[in-house]
Every structure is written in structure tokens, then in C-alpha cells.
Amino acid sequence: MSQNLHRTRRRAHVLFASIPAHGHINPGLGLVAELVERGHRVSYATTDEFTAQITDSGAEPVRYDSLLPGTSGAQRSEWPDDELTAQRLFLDETDLVLPQLERALADDRPDVIVYDVAAFAGLVLAEKWRIPRIQLSPTYVFSPGIEQVLGMTQDTAGKREVRARYDRYFAAQGVGLAFQDIAVPQRAIVTIPRGFQYFGDQVEDSFEFVGPMLSERAFQGGWSPPDDRPVLVISLGSAYNDRRDFYRRCLEAFGGMDRHVVLSVGRGIDPAELGEAPENFEIHQWIPQLKVLSHADAFLTHAGMGGVMEGLHQGVPLIAAPQAAEQFANADRIEQLSLGVQVDSGTVSPDELRDALSKVTKDPDIRGNVDRMQQEIRESGGLTRAADRVESLLEG
């Protein structure tokens, strides 16, 4: 679609609703910026912890209080790693957030709502106010066989209780939603390439696989390598990253090598706790990951989908060290597609870490597959296709 056509569409009010977590907010920031660039007014429901990122993208923050981990009102310090606990937590969050959004937006209703796969308040609000909606999924979407891959096939009393609780909540809100609408939305923008989705050729056309929609993220700052040595990036993400023993094994494995290593240990660890760093290491609590990956030739990652997509977007082969939840399915997919290798962070030895690095940086099959996946990402449409899809909802 040409820029002229973009300009002829009416200026709309678009609401983004997400949960306060980097892996859910970051994948959509580029889309926010693109819609703002096209002349739309974008509001973004968020917490104090993410207002800087939201403002930098050009959106107007709509602040709410949350009970999720990492926020000032958190009811637990860590994200749950089992399905039922997570689903209960997200419903409690919905119950808390929805009335806040209703009050904040009562006199400024959006024309379209873009809601994260876990931001059920956005889904319910759209249904209540009869506003067009589209889900933004930073991970796998429903496809035949996906439940087997994710280990979610067995029906239990706990699952039935959770489904019933959601259905009661939806009924109490006076909306015609059911638990199934969470997993199978009317329509969705998916920020992974179809080739990375399990059974991607069987996913319905209402799911638009646009690939990662990455922006410059100027608010994160820059980074440049100190010399011309190859760069290894190590990060276990923003959750499930309290792994001091693993980081020490990385220091032993890669210390003294003829390469530069950037290690991100998370906000909860003081780098000094790991002891004296080898000369070729720099250790931080947080890094501008996308910028650092643009200089890397290997990425040792927890295999969170956001990090995986950032690495593949930059054409970087992966060493997956999954920690929790869907990260194990992501790591398996990385190996299936020969985009890298998988290690067990709990037991992997320094020698095995060095072997993994040698494998991903020297294997021509891995290199070729990473290049092909990077090309598929480039051809998936990205920001332009995603923004066109959101704008198409304004035409009805």
C-alpha cells in the first residue's frame, strides 16, 4: 500500500492493551510507532514500569495498576511456570485492570483495540463496547497439534475449573465470550514467521504472520563492540534469570577466548557476585539487546520468543538454554529447524558450552537455515503488513 493511501484514511484512535512484561510489550512497539507515523492517535494501557518505552514509541500511556510480577502491586515475585496458575493469575489481572480502563477511556473510546495474547481486559473491553479488535500474538497461535507440542492435551479437573471460572467472569461482564475465544481469536497479527510456527501450514488465514516488528528502540541506548573480534551474547531474559551457577560456567567456558562476550544477568544479580570477569567479558544487569545482537555471531538465549526472533532477525545462530514455560518448545523448534542447538542450563558443562558455540558458528547447515529464516522474516511483511491490517478494521 502506498503512503498516499495511508494518508487518505481517517485519523483513528487505536488502543493497545498488553501486560507489563518485556516479552509482550517490546514486540508491538514498532507497530505503535508505525501507526503514529501514519497519523493515528495511539493510546497504550500500561503500568508505571513501561511508560518510558510507550512514550518513546509515540503513544499516550493510559496508566493502570497491576498485580503481575515486576510491578509495584505484584502479588508474587516470579512468573508462574505452570499453565493453570498462569491462567488464574491473568484472570485476576483482568478483573483488576478492566474497570480501570473503562473509567480512563469512558469519554475517549478507541476506534480499534489491539490486544496482547494475555491482555484479556482489552478483549473484554472491545466486546463490551462493540469495538473492532485484533489480537497481537508474540508467540505461537492455535493450530492442529499445537496442544500436543505444548503438553496441554490432558483434560483435568483443574483445567475444567479454570475454564468455568473464565466463562462465569465473561457472563458477569455481559459479553458473549467463552474461554475458547482466548486461544482462538477472531483475527490476529502474529510476530513470528509462519515457518517458525508449529504446523504453520495448517493455521487459518485470519492469523497474519508478519514476523518480528522491530524498531530502533532509541530509549535503550546504543552499543558498539570494542574491537573486531566476534561477539557472543548471553542472556536469560527478564524473568527466570536468577542463575548464578550457570553464569559462572559461562565465564569458565568462554573466558580467555578470542572473542568478545556480552553477558546480561538480570536486575536481580549484582555482576560483582560472579567474581572477577575475564578480560574478554563485559557483564551487565541489562543490555540494549537488539543493538548488541546486530554485532553478534552467536546468541546463548533462554529461548523466549522475543529474544529468538531478535536473534533470527539479525541472522544470528542460537544456543537455546530454556528455563520455563514455552521456552522448551521454542528450543525444540530451534533444533528441529537446525537454527542452532539446545543445552540444559542446569547440567551443561563449560566444555559442552564451548562445543555448542563451535557448532553454531561453524556448521554450514545451521548457517544456511538461519539465513533462510532471516529472509523469510524480511519477506513476511513486518510493520507495513501489520499496520495495513489494523487500518483495514477501520473500513468496516
Rank of each mutant, 00 (worst) to 15 (best):
G268R: 14
V262M: 13
A183P: 00
I234G: 01
F209I: 02
P185L: 05
F199Y: 10
A188G: 10
Y169T: 05
V203D: 01
D228L: 10
G256P: 06
F299A: 05
R259M: 15
E279G: 15
N280D: 09
D297R: 13
P226T: 13
A183C: 03
A272M: 10
D167N: 15
F281L: 12
L251I: 09
R229M: 07
F179G: 04
Y240L: 02
I269C: 03
T301A: 12
V262H: 05
F219Y: 15
A164L: 12
L177N: 01
L214D: 01
E279N: 12
I269L: 14
D270T: 11
T191L: 01
E208H: 13
R229F: 10
S238Q: 06
L251A: 11
I234S: 02
A277E: 14
Q173K: 11
F199L: 04
D227G: 12
G256R: 10
I189V: 12
A164I: 02
L290H: 06
Q173H: 04
W286M: 09
A183G: 14
E216V: 15
A272Y: 00
V233H: 08
R259N: 00
Q220Y: 05
Q202D: 11
L290F: 12
R168E: 15
M257E: 13
G266Y: 06
G222Q: 11
L251W: 04
D205E: 15
L177K: 03
R249L: 08
F207K: 06
V184C: 08
Y240S: 10
F207E: 03
F179K: 05
R243P: 03
G221S: 11
R267H: 13
S235V: 01
F179D: 10
I189Y: 00
L300C: 10
P212R: 01
D205C: 01
L274Q: 11
L293V: 08
P271D: 11
G176M: 02
L177S: 09
